[in-house]
């Protein structure tokens, strides 16, 4: 599949944004997050900005973006429509939560309303990312996408990239603090983030192993209905130039460099951020620099991973254009 930048930015930016909002909302709902206006407002604003940028990027993929409002209507059948509805609905608890933060009456714990908003924010963000994943995993025409690993991969990647943002924002907020407080997040939380990183990388490895070894879903013989006659191969294409189908679904570049790009995604996305987490735990004074490096490197890895997700996926229509089985 053609890896359109608009769709890659949509899934990675909104993934990070909703991941950040889900973590923040969960922290507030469980009363784990400090009742502090700036410490809460910063991740809330950054999360909403990232999610909004991602949604805006997705409209760049549209032929008629000013009609995008129509996409909220078909939630009964379409995961794309459900994603739109969930994305917009998630703004509501975020706005109420944000408005509530302006009341700085000094309580050190969260009152019930923000905790409910936090829970709704967390659930809404997770549902939105799940819907994003289902847009792709519901397509039976693309075997690399329509499998049960895609949704968990999207959810884990969202929480991981959201976690990287949360860490950076927390270290920046506490850069003047003494000792281990400069870590931004509690050492246990950082260790938890390292575990999420490892789990995400392992799940992605499992996904890659699955798409490399899965039995083909259809063959050129079944696509042409000529199986009874023998082996079929494309002899002459209908057109001498490209058409929409070959441009959109016939992308081959990534499959040639897949192994190298997968290594880049794992090293930049996970190995380097894990090293920076270890560095920060060892030398808390370096926490902000480490968190910044982790975010930059991790985002690059996630970008490469998402690019591969699109570019490596083969569509069954390529059977009509020379592929033997997909």
């Amino acid at each position: 599949m053609h890896p359109a930048l608009s769709v890659i930015f949509f899934t990675t930016l909104s993934g990070a944004g909703y991941g950040l909002l889900a973590l923040l909302g969960g922290g507030i709902a469980l009363d784990l997050w400090p009742r502090d206006t700036t410490a809460t407002l910063a991740p809330l604003a950054v999360g909403l900005t990232l999610a909004s940028l991602g949604l805006l990027a997705s409209t760049a993929h549209l032929g008629r973006p000013w009609r995008a409002w129509r996409a909220f209507s078909q939630w009964r059948s379409s995961w794309l429509s459900r994603e739109g509805v969930a994305a917009v609905a998630t703004y509501m608890p975020a706005i109420v939560l944000g408005a509530g933060l302006l009341d700085t009456s000094g309580s050190s714990t969260w009152s019930p309303l923000p905790r409910i908003c936090g829970a709704l924010l967390s659930v809404g963000a997770a549902v939105t990312v799940f819907c994003t994943a289902r847009i792709y995993s519901s397509l039976r025409t693309i075997p690399a996408w329509s499998n049960s690993l895609v949704a968990p991969v999207y959810l884990l990647f969202a929480s991981y990239s959201g976690g990287l943002w949360l860490w950076l924002l927390s270290t920046v907020a506490q850069r003047g603090a003494p000792g281990a407080d400069r870590l931004g997040l509690a050492p246990a939380l950082l260790a938890g983030m390292a575990l999420v990183a490892i789990a995400t990388a392992l799940l992605k490895l499992l996904y890659w192993r699955h798409i490399d070894s899965a039995a083909p879903r259809a063959s050129i013989e079944s696509a042409t209905g000529l199986a009874a006659f023998g082996s079929v191969s494309a002899f002459e294409h209908p057109h001498t130039e490209q058409n929409y189908i070959t441009r959109e679904m016939g992308f081959v570049l990534a499959r040639r460099h897949a192994a190298r790009l997968r290594a880049v995604a794992l090293l930049a996305g996970f190995a380097l951020p894990l090293a920076t987490i270890a560095t920060a735990l060892q030398w808390p004074a370096l926490a902000t620099v480490s968190a910044f490096a982790a975010l930059i490197s991790g985002s690059l890895g996630v970008f490469v991973e998402r690019w591969l997700f699109f570019a490596q996926a083969r569509h069954v229509v390529s059977l009509y254009y020379g592929a033997r089985s997909v």
Partner: peptide, 25 residues
């Protein structure tokens, strides 16, 4: 009503749908 999101063309196994760059649908 079409917004030109192209998802339907991805969902078709037979390549029956083609997006018009000129018309955006």
């Amino acid at each position: 009503k079409c917004i030109g999101c192209k998802l339907c063309s991805w969902a078709c196994p037979y390549g029956a749908r083609e997006y018009s760059e000129k018309r955006g649908v």
